[in-house]
Computed example of a mutant assay.
Amino acid sequence: MPPGYCVTTDAFRRVVAEAPSLEDQLDQLSRLDPEDRNAIGALSAEIRDTVAAIPVPGDLAEALTKPLARLGEEAACAVRSSATAEDLPTASFAGQQDTYLNVVGSAAVLERIRACAGPRCSPTGP
């Protein structure tokens, strides 16, 4: 198995705390008609954009990219999403929502980590 690491929910919470508008957007999402897939998809896209635009604090960015130095600057990495039901004792479905392969460089890894955050829903299905 290749070396890897996980971004914790604590790190995620720390970053999203910097976006007060996110709470309002999530509240709006909870009040939408569950059958209105277009509205859900549009608001989900706004939430993803909000999360992706939040700067990662310097100390957290360093903690996320420091392990990459051991691999070398040109090493290609995979960045994958994960949800609670994706990693079970007998099976793993990590990356089911988002998977980015051949990500090279610390800045690109941080960008892809941010891209994995937030709800994803399209008009044709989650």
Rank of each mutant, 00 (worst) to 15 (best):
G125M: 11
E23A: 13
L64Y: 08
A17T: 11
R112A: 02
Q97D: 04
I47D: 12
Y100D: 02
E74D: 15
E18I: 12
V103D: 00
S106T: 08
P89T: 09
A61F: 07
A117K: 00
D24C: 15
P123N: 08
P123W: 14
L29E: 06
P20M: 10
D10S: 04
G95A: 07
T50D: 15
R14K: 12
A108Q: 15
T90F: 13
V51R: 11
A85T: 10
R112N: 07
Q96R: 10
A108W: 08
I54D: 12
T84E: 11
Y100V: 04
S81D: 06
Q28V: 03
A11F: 04
A83Q: 00
A52V: 15
P123E: 08
E73Y: 07
D49W: 05
E111Y: 09
V7Y: 00
V51A: 10
R120C: 09
R112V: 04
K66L: 15
A75L: 09
T8Q: 02
R48W: 14
Y100P: 06
S122Y: 10
T99W: 02
E35P: 00
A76W: 00
Y100I: 06
A107R: 13
T124F: 11
P34K: 05
T65A: 05
G72C: 09
E23T: 15
L71W: 04
R31H: 12
D10F: 01
D24R: 15
V15R: 11
D98N: 01
L43W: 10
F93L: 04
L88D: 04
L88T: 13
M1W: 05
D24Q: 14
A42I: 08
R112T: 03
T8Y: 03
E86M: 03
T65M: 09
L71K: 07
V51E: 14
C121P: 03
A91I: 06
I113K: 01
A83V: 02
K66E: 14
Q96H: 13
R112Y: 01
G105V: 10
Q96F: 05
P123M: 11
Q96A: 13
E111W: 05
A45G: 14
T50P: 08
D49H: 07
P67C: 02
L101A: 10
A45I: 06
S92G: 07
T84R: 01
